[in-house]
Design a protein around this nucleic acid. Structure first.
Length: 425
RNA sequence: GGAGGGAUGGCCGAGUGGACGAAGGCGGGGGACUUGAAAUCCCCUGUGGGCCUCGGGCCCACCGCGGGUUCGAAUCCCGCUCCCUCCGCCA
């Protein structure tokens, strides 16, 4: 949610931000009109209330019964007028907040301007692309061949975009989750949380998934439960409606959750293999900071994501998203993409974003400054650390050998118990 | 699924129609005392919004949420949500 004061006082700035994103800026005028209407009504309502309060306080002290009755009668009439005005005020306010909820965050000033992903900027590349003296197989061939992935039975049970991991495949995924969590906790300073995977609608709204991305979410038809599309959702809501202490910031959390997405917007895309699934696993990093800390925290979180790739020996590049490609809540985002030799593509395994106070407003998360004074909204940041299926793909494809066996990256060996995943069954 | 209890400020906890934005305590800030600290004592300390003759004053809202009754609601009524306890059921 944007600050209504910003929209009121600097509409051109807000419009410019929306234009850079490729959004229609006319919503700004719409909101400003509603806001003006709301303030006008609010003023009238408050004046009537003030009068009612003033007179009502005096009524019990009036001795003369006639005068008393006259005042009561007058207040009765005032009450009627007030009620009508209040109803109109409520209506305008509802419309105002409904509209506000659809406005995305504004891009940070240093985000490259561009229409879509073609304007994203590769800011860094790390590692050598692996070379093969044979043709490396894509995971959708190699996985079933050596019996670590079973797409057919996944589809049998649940349809397209579902899969089954078997044996070493299942263990590789489990090892990755465990190792990543340990890394973030022991080396990067995050605290591990295990949150609910189903949350209330209010929580989904707080992180900015609703109202705009309703189509991408699974939810219970009978009860108010929504399946999390990312751990970012429960990690945002963890401190919902709280006032934190500045001394405790930054607060860093990491969590493993499955993620559930309907992928309606990507219908028909990436249907082969495990690049895009209705259910996938992810380890997430999350931070709450002061406004002053958030840019440095963004850089730290990006380094943490990068280091995760480095330790796995996966070549990657860092892409800064342009204004047109930013997510709804983000003001600045870096994607980390690893090279997958079998499919011959860079695959996004992490997206690290500074959200500013956008989610904090929705979730009502503030902190009390050290020197005292009024609470301020925190800044929040989120980043994948990392998304599992694509890391799985890159490992399987980059570390494959001619006989179909897969060399296990050093850091995972203690978790796997073997150095090589055998090339048969 | 059944029965009951509850939701008040950063936290705990009083308050059953007007003097309650709300006692008391804790926490926080300032001061006195002290060589320093502790203890003790004194003072201050909710959030959001609006107005003004703006380092001060005034107004409005907020006691889970939404309605209602009333001149007037934290307090009465209705609906909802959430939390807790016990029983049952399932593990």
């Amino acid at each position: 949610m944007l600050d209504i004061n910003l929209i009121r006082n600097q509409p051109e700035l807000v419009k410019e931000g929306l234009r850079k994103r490729g959004e229609d800026p006319s919503i700004v005028d719409e909101v400003r009109e509603l806001d003006a209407e709301r303030r006008k009504l609010l003023h009238q309502v408050e004046q009537l209330r003030a009068e009612r309060n003033r007179v009502s306080k005096r009524i019990p002290k009036i001795q003369d019964p006639q005068e008393r009755e006259a005042k009561i009668q007058a207040m009765r009439e005032l009450g009627e007028r007030l009620k009508a005005l209040e109803a109109r005020l409520r209506e305008v306010e509802d419309r105002l907040w409904e509209r506000m909820a659809w406005i995305p965050n504004l891009p940070a000033p240093d985000v490259p301007v561009g229409e879509d992903e073609s304007a994203n900027v590769v800011v860094k590349q790390w590692g050598e692309l692996p070379e093969f003296d044979f043709t490396p197989k894509p995971h959708w061939d190699l996985g079933p061949q050596i019996g670590i992935v079973d797409f057919e039975r996944g589809v049998k049970m649940s349809g397209t975009r579902f899969f089954v991991l078997r044996g070493w495949g299942a263990k590789l995924q489990r090892a990755l989750i465990q190792w990543m969590l340990d890394l973030h906790v022991e080396k990067h300073g995050y605290q591990e949380l295990y949150p609910p995977f189903m949350v209330r609608e209010r929580v989904i709204f707080a992180s900015g998934q609703l109202p705009k991305f309703r189509d991408n979410l699974y939810h219970d038809a009978e009860e108010d439960y929504w399946w999390v599309p990312t751990a970012e959702v429960p990690l945002t809501a963890y401190h919902m409606d709280e006032i934190l202490r500045e001394e405790d910031l930054p607060l860093r959390y990491t969590a493993y959750t499955p993620c559930f997405r309907r992928e309606k917007a990507a219908a028909g895309r990436d249907v082969r293999g495990m690049k895009r699934l209705h259910q996938f696993d992810k380890v997430e990093m999350y931070a709450y900071t002061t406004p002053e800390q958030s840019e440095a925290e963004l850089q730290k979180m990006l380094r943490d994501a990068e280091e995760t790739c480095q330790l796995l020996g996966l070549p990657y590049r860092v892409v800064q998203l342009c204004t047109g490609d930013l997510g709804f809540a983000a003001r600045k985002t870096y994607d980390v993409e690893v090279w997958a030799a079998g499919v011959g593509e860079w695959l996004e395994v992490s997206s690290v974003s500074n959200v500013g106070d956008f989610q904090a407003r929705r979730a009502n998360i503030r902190y009390r400054p050290k020197e005292g004074g009024r609470p301020r909204y925190v800044h929040t940041l989120n980043g994948s650390g990392l998304g599992l299926p694509r890391v799985f793909i890159a490992i399987v494809e980059n570390y494959q050998q001619p006989d179909g066996s897969i060399v296990v990256p050093q850091v995972l060996r203690p978790y796997m118990g073997v150095d090589v995943i055998p090339g048969s069954g």
